[in-house]
Nucleic acid binder design. Structure first.
Lengths: 101, 101
DNA sequence: GGTCTATATTGACCACTGTCGATATACTGC
DNA sequence: GCAGTATATCGACAGTGGTCAATATAGACC
């Protein structure tokens, strides 16, 4: 069994995107809110600077976790539509035959 | 909303443990096998050295993803019993009201 | 076009982590 | 106790990634 995974494994990418306190917090907020949140709200609420927030949002975006939609000067972010499904799928492969779904 | 999460957030810890190609592969194998696997099998199958495997197993162990049971010279690892539940719980908090479970 | 705000990008810095060779520790069998 | 195998730990190092100030880009308004 070859265990040396290629770096672009989408599952690893997704997990890496979530494996940061700030980014996980962002995703939690998006989930709890249930609708798009303006990037500027994250800048105000998070204890890190604007460039850092922007960097984090980019990581999440490129991992397919979130999507952004520009509205004038603002960009509203929301969870990607397939995120829940991806989470569920990964869970099934990681938990074996246990009934996760 | 304070977004500066404390480092010991168990969810972040768990995600960090999984967010490595080798470690994710280990967990996938444990899930697919459905029963404990000897550490020595990982050493043989993974394209990294024995100390690295041991280090990875430790990270997974300390994050609560796996449990080891020594049998003589050998240690057999299996997924922690609550892993599936934890995955499911995190999924629920991250996916909002979507029916993940 | 100029000015303003919102957001992304750049470059530097530094802490953290994956990796490995060497070694320590655990266990077995004699 | 010794010799062997299995596994964990140590220490060093290269690479990665989070962070921020400065700056570039995007968009709105006049």
């Amino acid at each position: 069994m070859i265990a040396n995974m290629a770096a672009p494994d989408p599952d690893v990418r997704l997990l890496q995107a979530l494996a940061d306190p700030v980014r996980l917090s962002v995703v939690r907020q998006l989930a709890a809110q249930g609708r798009p949140i303006c990037a500027c709200d994250f800048v105000e609420c998070c204890a890190v600077s604007q460039p850092t927030i922007s960097h984090h949002l980019r990581v999440l975006r490129e991992a397919g976790v979130i999507r952004g939609e520009r509205q004038g000067s603002f960009i509203f972010y929301a969870l990607a539509q397939d995120f829940a499904l991806r989470w569920r799928d990964i869970g099934q492969t990681l938990s074996g035959l246990l009934a996760v779904a």
